[in-house]
Structure formats: C-alpha cells, structure tokens
Nucleic acid binder design. Structure first.
Lengths: 376, 376
DNA sequence: TGCACTTTGGCAACAGCGTTGCCAAAGTGG
DNA sequence: CCACTTTGGCAACGCTGTTGCCAAAGTGCA
C-alpha cells in the first residue's frame, strides 16, 4: 500500500514518517562518523534538530542496541561531550554481485566493514534454477563461516541480501527483464525467488546502481555519477544524495548515448554509441583515445545534470586507471574553462576497486533495512 | 538557517515540516482538480492520509480562504461527497520572461489561469539599471491594470514575482553569472534588486527551468524533459516531480552535449555540439535533419534518465512543430524497439506555446509561496 | 582548596501533528 | 417509512519534537 502511494504520486506525511526519517538521518551520520563517533550536539547541528530531540532519538537507537556511548571529547570549558558510536556488530548485510561468469558475495557489518567474502565462478547460461542454487548456497556458506550461524535470521543479525547484476531489470519488483545473451532469464522474479529460499529481505538492482548506493553511503555527497567500464559501459547516477533509477530502472544507460552521428555500428543496433567507440579503442590498445571518448560522454553528463563528481570503476578502468582519469579530467577541465566555471567536476577512481558493486549491493540493504525507508 | 541546512546536507523533520508538506500536497491536488473540484475522501485516497486528517487540513485551507466547498457529487448509496475547490482569486503571481530582445509579463491566479498579460521590447544591453526600471514598471503596470491596485502587496493578493531568463545564473541566490553577449550583467543580484523595488518575494531561474516548473505544476507527472529550441538549445529536467537544477543551477545544458566527435566548431568553443548541428540545419532550411539531430540528443537524455516524456518548445519549434515532433519521435521509437521496451518516451509540444516560460515563472512563486517549501 | 563559570544532557510539561472511536447528517432503496 | 450506506465533524488520544528547568561535570581564576 505504501509502495503504491510512493509510486503513484506524492505521499502524505505523519509522525511515523518523521520518526523514521530522523532516525535514519541520525543513524547515517553515526555511520559516517565511523569509529571516531559523534556527539549529540554535533548531531543536532548537522540535522537542525534540537539537542533534546537528538537525545531522544539516540536514546531509542541505544535501546535498540544500534548505538552506544563511547568515551568523551576534550572539554572546552564545560562538561565534555559524550561520544556516540554505532555498534557495528548489531547487524549484518550480504551483498551479491552476479556477473556473466563470476559470483562475488560479501558480508558486511552495520558500519560497512567487510567481515567475509567469497568468490566463485558462475555460468548464467546454466539456467535460472541452477544459478539460483549456486547463489543461495554461496550466501548461506558465507554467513555460516563468518557469522557462525546456520540460521540466517538468528538473533536478527542478518538484515537482508542485496543483489546486483547487469542488464535491464525492475528494481521495484525485483524482476529481471532479460540478461544480455541469456534469454532464459526473461521475466525471472529473482527477488521473490531468493527471498523465499533465504528467508530474509532481498533487494535487486542494476550493478551500476548498487555501486552508486554504496558510494553515496560511503560519504560521497551531493550529486555524482559512477561510470562503470567493464564488458559494457554504464552509469549509476546519484542526484542530491539519492540514486536516480527512473520509473523502469532504465536510467544510467550511459554507454549507448550517441556521440558520433552515423558512426560505427554498435551491437545495440544504433550508430556511434559511446560504448562501441570506447571499447573498440580499448581493444585496439588506444587507451588515450578511449579515455578521451569516455571524457566526452562524461562531459555530456556533467552538462546535463550539473553533477559534482565523476567516479570511474569497472575492470577495464581498474586495470590501469591513470590514463582514464587523466583523459576524462582533461575533457571536463576544458569544458569548465569554456563555461567560465571556477572548478570542474572532480574525477576519481573508486577506492573499493572491484568490490564496489558487491559492497553497494550490501549497502542497499543497510540503507533501507535498519529503519524504514532510509534516505539512500 | 533552514536554507543552510537544506544545502549542506539532509535536514531533520518536525511537526511544522509535516504540516506544510501535507498542506502543500493537498493544495496541489486541489489545483490539479481545477474547476471540477475534488472530495475529501478522494484527497485522502490520493495522499494516503486518513479522511479525518484531510478534513483538518482542508479546514485550515478553507479558513485561510484558499479553498471552499462547491456543490456535491452524486450519491452512491449514502451521503454524497462534498466537493472542495480552490478559490482561484485568493492569490495571484506574476511571471516575467526576460529575453535578449523582449519582455513578457503575465499575471496568473492561484489556479494558474492567466488574468493579465503584457509584452514589450527589451534591450538587455542597455545596462542593468535601465532594464530593471523597465521590468519594474511593467510588473507594476500589469498588476495595476488587471488587479486594480496600486499597492502590490495589498490584501495579500500578490504572492510574488517569478523571473525567468536565459544564461547561467544562481537560482538559490538569485544572482546572474553572466548573460551571453551582455557582460555588464556579470554577478548582478537580480532577485534582491527586484525584491527591494517591488516589495514582494522574487524568484529567479533559468528560462528552461521555469518552463519545467510550470509544466510539472500543470499536471505533467513523473519525469520529463522540456527541450527549448529558440536562439539556443536548452533543457529543463523534472525528475520524480521535482525540477533538477544541480548545485550551480547548471543542469539542463542540453545543447552543448557532443554528438559528433571532431564535428563543426560551436561558438562555445567545443566541437560537434548538438546546438550548432541543430541550429545550422535549421538555418539551411533542413528541418528534417535538425529534427533528427534533436532526436538523437533527446535519445541520449531518455537513456540516461529514463524519463517518461519529452516536451518541445521554443520559437524555432513552435513556428512549425510537426516535423520536430515526428523527427524526435522516430528516433526515440527506434531506440525503444532496440531496447525491447513496450513503449517509448512520448513526444509532444507544449500547449502553452510561447507563454510556457513566463507561466512557469509565475508558477515558481505559487509552488513555494502559498505554503512553505512546496513540492515543486 | 574553593568557588564562579561554562557546557552537556536528562526530566517534565507542553503544543501540535495525524489517528482513532464515536455519532449526527444526508443521502439511497425496499 | 425505515433500514442501510456513506460522509465528515467532535473529542480523546498517542506520539512527535520543543521548551523550561536543573543536576552533572568539567575549566580556570583566586
């Protein structure tokens, strides 16, 4: 019912919404503070809430076991501030990245720290049932070996499983539209199938969106794009702190923007797509050219959305990031100079490397799982 | 203070936020219902609020003179629903469109109906002070002749003035960065200057954003783009019902996306921009080519953002819309077929014609002016 | 060592939000 | 005419963050 409301229009607010909003807000600030912790008054300043409200909210979080007091700051002439810290062991989430040929499973704590990881081969062509079995077994095994519990839901420790994979899909329903090259997956209800077998909440999303969620939760503020250059070229967009998926989870199709009218044929059927130009340059060993072409696409994106930052990832980039960073930076730099802007959008490489997608998948669970509909 | 919070991060919510959110929500539904009106129970269904909450909210709106009961629906076996209607005369807003060579001022009622309009020539090169004088006089005269009051703020009837103009500017501060071709405007604090002279709230935004606000308020739901093809080529983006401006009000720079690597030089300094390709085709009289190129840009946009609809406007399109609609539709259609989507993004022409920008400018005031921070 | 001062943060009372329970009003339909 | 349905207001309520107040816990000067 609430999902309908959110989809079909704008929803009315009530006290419950206020509470979960504020709780999620405080929780995310606690997470951002990490092991350093954060004081109540600092939380009040950052949220705009009164100190007393923060006290009540953190009191609830402490009672729920999600937060705890952890030492004090130095005094500034009065009573020293008490430091609050997230209790990282209070919850865990599993992140799954399903690729064409590989499976990656990570287990993270509430604070995002990785406590377990597992990698193995995967053959998406083996059929939905077989693949599902492999994924379920891998998740079970990961949780068992690192949390030491056979029962996934035991003690409420496992909040859920996030699954990221390429290809068109429906995030809201958790249904795959198709998986490029593997027609057997058309319309497969991956979320419900996994939820039934694992017995915990499951979230499904495109790999690029998952990465974007993880990066946003990892402290990347404002608006940014994650550009993933691997076997394909896609983007995850974060606008004002929230991932933008579009109504059909179709947003972020970055690789098939046309940057050369009547250019070479792309396998999508169109001509002059960024992806075919970029990847064919990579295949020819012309990394500089690939980077410049990627930069042009990034420039188009920055101009359209006025984003603050561009983060690069994906196997092809991570193999040797510097020419890509340099090439994209140069294009954006030139753009900013032309526009008369003081600073261009900053370009960087994801520091999580190849794990950025699976970590983001886990993050999707933490973002919404701990307190109502979180803020992403 | 609240502005700081909103800009620097995510803000905590309290009861006041809930009230203004829900009030704005109900008000926007009342506006959407127009002269037909809408019943309390319908409002409850649409917002997800309980009927009793809707009764309280509409009670406040009625007390404020913004809404009124207006007849009843047919009975369905019980007491017939009472119809509520916006009181259109309860408030007015002025929309100003400043163009390189022309000024357009519209006066609209709370329901968006135009009750007055005024057009005259403008020379942006005449200097800020001179132009300001012309604008102020035009606004005063428009209000006086159609509302019959010399005092703008009298009876709280004029809620504010929205101003739309091209060129880079800062929406949040209401400061112009520069106006292409007229360096004298660099850094001019247009919003504050107008507010001081007119004595009512003033909102300043890019012309394309203003149009987008107006279209969104006019019932265009979901996510869409307004593409404006006039002396330049720009876009206004609405994502999930809200205009996306970017941190620097720089979003929507649609015309300078590169669609032809190493293409012809654009006056922005880059090569192969959509704008130069499209407008030069128009200049050569090759409208079909211009439309196709525009379609390619629209396709890139649809792919990146997964928007539902593309609306065309601007002098060049409005002169003869059908080839543009056809050309863009064909490109998007082909895209959707390639993707295997059931339906492509719909293409249309703004029904407001040349007034879409000035009407949107007025809408910017109504959206935020009546109740706190509205929903855009 | 003592006392004035600053700062933190909990307790209690409070205002105001939407919600719930209840019932009068105003229709339909047999 | 009366049973029934549906609408929507009144009153009590639970819960939110807010405000006023004060104890706790430091600093720093005398």
């Amino acid at each position: 019912m609430s999902e309908d409301r959110v989809n079909s229009g704008r929803a009315g607010a009530n006290l419950g919404v206020v509470r979960s909003h504020n709780s999620a807000l405080v929780l995310s600030l606690l997470r951002g503070a990490g092991a350093d912790g954060i004081s109540r008054l600092e939380l009040a300043e950052r949220t705009g809430l009164t100190p007393q409200a923060v006290s009540k909210i953190t009191g609830r979080l402490r009672e729920a076991g999600l937060a705890a007091e952890a030492g004090r700051r130095a005094s500034t002439g009065g009573k020293p501030r008490t430091v609050l810290r997230l209790v990282p062991e209070a919850g865990h989430a599993v992140g799954v990245q399903m690729d064409r040929d590989a499976l990656r499973v990570v287990l993270v704590r509430l604070d995002g720290a990785v406590v377990g990881e597992r990698r193995e081969g995967l053959d998406l062509g083996a059929g939905a049932e077989a693949v599902l079995g492999v994924v379920v077994a891998a998740v079970r095994e990961t949780v068992r070996s690192f949390l030491g519990s056979g029962e996934l839901t035991e003690a409420g420790s496992l909040l859920g499983v996030g699954v990221a994979l390429p290809g068109p899909l429906d995030h809201a329903r958790g249904v795959l539209h198709r998986v490029t090259g593997f027609p057997g997956w058309d319309g497969f209800p991956l979320r419900d199938a996994l939820r039934e077998r694992l017995g915990v909440p499951v979230v499904v999303d495109k790999d690029t969106n998952a990465a974007a969620v993880g990066l946003a939760a990892g402290g990347e503020g404002g608006s940014f794009a994650y550009l993933h250059l691997g076997t394909g070229l896609g983007a995850g967009l974060v606008i004002g702190g929230r991932v933008h998926r579009g109504a059909r989870t179709g947003a972020g199709e970055f690789g098939h923007q046309v940057v050369q009218l009547d250019g070479p044929r792309c396998e999508c059927g169109d001509r002059g797509c960024l992806e075919v130009l970029c990847l064919s340059a990579v295949a020819r060993g012309e990394v500089e050219t690939a980077a410049r072409v990627l930069g042009v696409g990034a420039g188009n994106l920055v101009g359209l959305l006025d984003i603050d930052r561009v983060l690069l990832g994906g196997r092809t980039v991570l193999r040797d990031p510097s020419p890509f960073v340099r090439g994209v930076s140069e294009v954006l730099d030139a753009r900013a100079r032309r526009e008369g802007l003081r600073e261009e959008a900053a370009v960087g490489v994801v520091r999580q490397g190849e794990r950025v997608v699976s970590l983001g998948a886990a993050e999707m669970v933490l973002g919404v799982g701990v307190f109502g509909r979180g803020e992403g």
